[in-house]
Simulated scan of single mutants.
Amino acid sequence: MAKKYRIGQFVKVKITGIQSYGAFVKTPDNRDGLIHISEVMNDYVHDVNQYLSKGQIVKAKIVSIDENGKISLSLKENEYFKNEEKKRDKRSVLEKIKDSEKYGFQTLAERMPVWIEEAKERMKE
């Protein structure tokens, strides 16, 4: 007998495949589902492979169930992925520069006040 799932429920799922748009999963009772790339975390995700891998088991929240029983899931309320977002927010200014565009001297002068404010906020935490 198939397990009855409901929207808002948390369920452990196994990653069965990864595509550029998200990760395919299976529930313990072999129902298919998808974690769309936009549901991995609140921050921008360029590559799902940075966060998920085939065979991995994750706890995800059901966001919808279609008429065929396929489940759409989200990791945004998973504590591990929330912590990953916090770590990304606390990256140093140098890491942010490496990850983004190349700055010239004029841009550095424009960006410096913003970076100082971000550093002050991190010091308060």
Rank of each mutant, 00 (worst) to 15 (best):
Q106P: 00
I37E: 02
S64H: 05
S72E: 15
H46S: 06
Q106G: 13
V63Y: 03
K26H: 08
K4E: 11
N83I: 05
K59S: 14
L52R: 05
L52K: 03
K54T: 15
Q50K: 14
S20R: 12
T27Q: 01
E77A: 03
N49P: 02
D89T: 06
I71L: 11
S38R: 14
V63K: 14
K102Q: 08
P113F: 01
G17M: 06
K54M: 11
E121M: 08
D29E: 11
I7M: 08
S20P: 01
K120L: 04
Q19H: 10
E125Q: 09
R111L: 15
K70Y: 03
V63Q: 10
I15F: 01
M123H: 11
F24C: 04
S74A: 00
R31D: 06
V58R: 02
V114N: 01
K87L: 13
K102G: 10
E67H: 14
S92D: 07
I116P: 02
K61P: 02
K4P: 00
N68E: 15
P28V: 13
K26F: 06
E117T: 13
L73D: 04
K82Q: 08
S72N: 15
S38Y: 07
R31P: 01
I65D: 13
F81K: 03
A60K: 05
W115P: 00
K26Q: 07
I71D: 08
E85G: 08
R91W: 10
I35S: 04
H36A: 13
D66L: 09
K124M: 09
G55D: 04
R111W: 07
V40W: 06
V114I: 08
D89E: 15
V45A: 06
Y21W: 14
K90V: 00
V114T: 01
K96D: 09
N30E: 15
G55S: 04
L34H: 05
E101F: 04
L52I: 05
I37L: 05
Q56A: 08
Y80H: 11
D47S: 00
N78C: 03
R91M: 13
E118A: 08
E125H: 09
P113C: 03
I116Q: 11
K70W: 00
M123L: 15
S92Q: 07
H46A: 01
N68T: 14
M123A: 15
Y44G: 01
I18L: 12
E95F: 06
V13H: 11
K102D: 09
E95Q: 14
L108N: 01
K96A: 02
E77D: 15
